[in-house]
């Protein structure tokens, strides 16, 4: 019996065993595609805030959780809203977003609600902060601004485009939103004033996170270059080509290194946090250098993995 050949047992000619394996694989691929989307981004955001909390030397708070929840909400909603457009660049994630759009939106809405509740508990500054990414997302992805522009200037024949479609401003807006959330959240949720940490330290960390986030947004655009071009979304790779984009982004990484050095020079940032950030920057430089050689899936998560590396280093060194 052991050598008996396996015969097709279903009308489509597949065996029960094969079908089971393929179904399991499909399910696993779906879970992996989902996990690599908004949950992964949420994890990265939480780690970023945790590293920033250590770098700023402020007390631990619910900031990483709140920012992680907001990141999940914003990115899940964005993936659902742009599922059809993402089908070319991230087909697995787009399939999940299309199939489970309502469930993802409900999860995103509850997630943002919990984040807001945490922020309310933390105080007005935290509340204002948590509202920022949502407001930016509305401008970034929805047709609110164009609609508002049409109402404001119906006779001018000038339509206000989606922020997502404006070259450079799209990545800059996302980078700034990340920087605001990552740097301000530890302060707002911890109830610590900027002056207590030092304005220079906060500003340098903010600039560092902003330029690093800019790189993290643009690197995956190398993967999305064809889809973005087809949708008339102007990104660095679309406008300047992949090679030139890589050189520019390496330059931005160099700027981040300079900012990190300046941050270290202030003497207020904790040493383990600085080492962790440096390790993350090194990963980022490596990913940028290999941008046109990594496959699409890897390129989608690799830039953000730099923060996970930073988080692991920080855990290893102790805050």
């Amino acid at each position: 019996m052991a050598n008996e050949p396996t015969r097709p047992s279903t009308p489509d000619g597949t065996t029960e065993q094969h079908r089971s394996i393929s179904t399991t694989r499909r399910a696993l691929r779906g879970v992996a595609a989902f996990a690599a989307g908004a949950p992964f981004t949420a994890l990265v955001a939480a780690v970023e805030v945790a590293v920033a909390t250590a770098a700023l030397g402020v007390p631990r708070s619910t900031a990483p959780v709140a920012v992680g929840l907001v990141a999940f909400a914003v990115y899940a909603a964005d993936h659902v809203a742009d599922a059809e457009g993402d089908a070319a660049s991230t087909p697995s994630r787009a399939r999940v977003a299309l199939r489970y759009g309502d469930q993802l939106m409900t999860a995103a809405a509850v997630s943002y609600g919990v984040a807001l509740a945490l922020a309310v508990r933390a105080g007005p500054a935290a509340l204002a902060l948590v509202c920022v990414p949502g407001a930016v997302w509305i401008g970034y992805a929805s047709d609110w601004l164009p609609a508002l522009g049409d109402v404001a200037a119906p006779l001018a024949e000038v339509s206000v485009p989606r922020l997502k479609d404006v070259f450079l401003l799209n990545s800059a807006a996302v980078a700034l939103a990340w920087a605001v959330a990552v740097v301000a959240a530890p302060l707002a949720f911890g109830g610590v004033a900027v002056e207590a940490v030092g304005l220079r330290t906060v500003a340098l960390l903010f600039a560092y996170v902003a330029v690093r986030s800019f790189v993290d947004v643009e690197v995956p655009n190398v993967r999305d270059v064809a889809a973005d071009a087809a949708r008339d979304v102007a990104t660095f790779p679309v406008v300047y080509g992949v090679g030139r984009t890589r050189r520019v982004l390496l330059g931005v990484d160099a700027l981040a290194a300079g900012l990190l050095a300046a941050l270290a020079a202030t003497g207020t940032a904790s040493r383990p946090a600085l080492v962790a950030l440096a390790a993350g920057l090194a990963v980022s430089v490596a990913v940028t250098a290999l941008a046109d050689r990594l496959d699409g899936a890897t390129l989608g998560v690799a830039p953000d993995c730099s923060y996970l590396v930073a988080g692991i280093v920080l855990l290893a060194l102790g805050p």
Partner: peptide, 18 residues
């Protein structure tokens, strides 16, 4: 209780807005 109200209210508001 109030934070639960905030959470559920905002979630419902987002879904309605959508």
């Amino acid at each position: 209780a109030l934070l639960v109200a905030v959470t559920l209210g905002l979630a419902a508001a987002i879904l309605a807005w959508r």
